[in-house]
């Protein structure tokens, strides 16, 4: 096109083989690396899930008779049977406040532990310790420590704060405590890592511009941290939403902590109604995904760019 263009006639035709052209779109033999994981996922995740979904549309005769709705009888039962449907609210009533407490509590702790002081390492290791405890030991410990005869009630009565032992376990509070113990370390670790991704010089810059600690936190740190907090909230919510053993062990599995996981297991293990169990399982996943989608939609309104740090 210019006087100096060196293009030869005929060079327009692509010499690339089909293989090259596919490679350009990202399709080549390296995709084989994905194959084991993909196969694995199809066989052990997608297929069973589809199978479960199919199963949920083959309701047992008893359910069909009681609730009608043909193929959808299980789903009709899920919404119509208050014994089942209430557990959606029971689960949310437990999971939402717990996730909120974990995230909101983790922020100041992570902020404080960002500073340097003696014993910081020890303190942060203790905070992370519950990860090794596991739900079952936590449950056992709560039953003994916070039970009617436990040290906690004894100590509280000893210093005269209460006259009667407080009911800490075998109820809503017990499950919540156990979820905080197992969920808070995760929230703390995540928030800390998001916090370390924020360039400290931003805080210094805020300082030189005359912002006090509250304004620096509210106008600089918090907006940059918000997407991370949303992610943390989702992950702790997921943990709390799928609560199972502690709801049984330290909760009131027939009352205030009759969560979805328990209901699904009951159908599966105790009533051997696999189709109803699959229905509850599917609906449980659906409820959770709806909530996550809501949080994600909310999160998309936050600032999403670089936070200037190393993470």
């Amino acid at each position: 096109m210019t006087a100096v263009t060196m293009t030869r006639a005929g060079a327009e035709r692509s010499s690339a083989s089909l293989k090259h052209r596919l490679a350009e779109r990202g399709i080549d033999s390296s995709l084989l690396l994905l194959l084991p994981a993909l196969l694995f996922s199809l066989v052990l995740f997608v297929y069973p899930f589809a199978y479960g979904l199919g199963l949920s549309f083959q309701p047992s005769g008893a359910i069909q008779q009681e609730f009608g709705g043909g193929f959808f009888a299980n789903y009709v039962a899920f919404f119509k049977d208050p014994f089942i449907f209430d557990s959606v609210w029971l689960t949310l009533r437990l999971a939402l406040p717990t996730a909120l407490i974990n995230v909101v509590g983790a922020v100041p702790v992570a902020l404080v532990l960002r500073r340097k002081f003696r014993g910081k390492r020890l303190l942060s290791s203790i905070l992370v310790l519950p990860i090794t405890l596991g739900t079952v030991l936590t449950a056992q410990g709560l039953l003994i420590f916070a039970g009617r005869q436990g040290w906690l009630n004894r100590a509280l009565m000893g210093i005269g704060l209460i006259d009667q032992p407080i009911q800490f376990v075998n109820n809503y509070l017990g499950v919540m405590l156990s979820l905080i113990i197992s969920g808070f370390p995760f929230a703390f670790l995540l928030v800390s890592s998001y916090l370390s991704g924020i360039d400290p010089s931003l805080d210094a810059a805020g300082r030189t511009l005359g912002a006090g600690w509250w304004n620096r936190f509210r106008r600089i740190t918090l907006p940059l941290l918000a997407p991370g907090l949303a992610t943390t909230f989702i992950l702790t919510f997921v943990l709390a939403f799928s609560v199972f053993p502690s709801a049984r062990l330290v909760g009131n599995p027939n009352g205030s902590t009759r969560v979805l996981a328990l209901m699904a297991y009951r159908s599966f293990g105790e009533q051997n109604d696999y189709t109803m169990a699959s229905t509850i399982a599917v609906m449980m996943g659906a409820c959770e995904l709806v909530f996550i989608a809501l949080v994600l939609a909310w999160r998309s309104s936050f600032y999403k760019g670089s936070t200037g740090g190393k993470g």
């Binding site: 995740f45 199978y51 939403f241 799928s242 199972f244 699904a264 399982a281 449980m284 959770e288």
Partner: peptide, 8 residues
Amino acid sequence: PPITFGIP
């Protein structure tokens, strides 16, 4: 939740 895919 693990229960969701665990049961099927």
